[in-house]
Amino acid sequence: MKDFDIKFKWIGASTWILSIDNLKIGSDPVLCQKDTLQHYRFFKTKRRTEPNYESKDFENIDFWLLTHEHEDHIDAYGVTKIEPESKVYANSNLKKWLKLIYATNVDYLKWGEKKIFEKENLKITIEAIPCVHASNYIAAKLAGSVNGYWLTVEKNKSKIQIYVTGDTVNHQKVKTFLKGRNADIMIPNIGAGGLDKFGGPYTFTANQFMDFEKTVNPKIILPVHHKTFSLYKEPIEKLYAYNDNRVLKFDEGDTLEVK
């Protein structure tokens, strides 16, 4: 990745900013304050931490990756940070959120669908990747559709592959879709969300992830979607305990140079 200048900032939950040269990508803006209680269909969750960002973080974002409609991924505060000039790639169940601000400049992607975004000397192919958002069939159906994303970033003769898992578990359907791919950077949603609920966990446990990651063999792993909400039941230390030097350690508000 020496041909690219890459920076990553985690704001909390699955909200992050990824900069590649002069390109700026945002993900899943959920910015409610600490102690906000969110009401889901069958349970509640509380935000444990303040979102850690500066206003400039959300300025001039070239495109957003929106995975799904759940309020630990997008909320009434976060959606206002999506500027009308920014391109948005989203699951179709985000329509009810995006109509609050504008209804143009959005591509709703089905699994396997691809779009191309170009800026200066960068060409980015965005592909929607399947997710299975629970550990049994009934809970997965109730949770609804979720997109992961695979980004292929090309500059001259250089290329990097970035996999954003979205909310998924270690399911054969997802692994089959990804077979034969290799990721330079993987941004997985960890935290064993809903581990104590029907059909849980809804996202990777550390143990699940360490099996799943072999599918794409990432060079660098940037784990998010832990700590922020009470729904996330497993501490990140469970993943750190594997002592895998590909797993970078950072906290909410931290900015990393990814090399």
Rank of each mutant, 00 (worst) to 15 (best):
E50F: 11
I162H: 07
L31R: 01
L65H: 00
V88E: 03
M1C: 08
M210I: 13
D251R: 11
N189Y: 02
E237T: 15
D167H: 14
I17Q: 06
A241Y: 06
R246P: 04
H70Y: 04
D57A: 08
D184K: 03
D107R: 13
K9G: 07
E59W: 02
N105M: 07
T165C: 12
T152Y: 06
P188Y: 02
G253D: 08
Y202T: 08
H226R: 09
G26K: 03
F204E: 01
L66Y: 02
I6A: 08
N60E: 13
K24S: 08
S86K: 05
K259Y: 12
E83Y: 09
E85H: 11
I138C: 07
A241M: 07
W111I: 12
F117T: 04
T168Y: 07
I185S: 05
P235A: 09
N156W: 05
G193M: 07
F177K: 01
F204Y: 11
V174Q: 06
V216W: 08
L256M: 09
N170V: 03
F250M: 03
K197P: 01
N91C: 15
K259R: 12
Y137N: 12
F250G: 02
T165W: 08
K95A: 13
I61M: 06
N136F: 11
I61Y: 00
K123E: 15
T49L: 15
Y53E: 05
H73F: 14
I61D: 02
T15H: 03
Y240K: 00
T67A: 13
F209H: 05
D211N: 13
L65M: 00
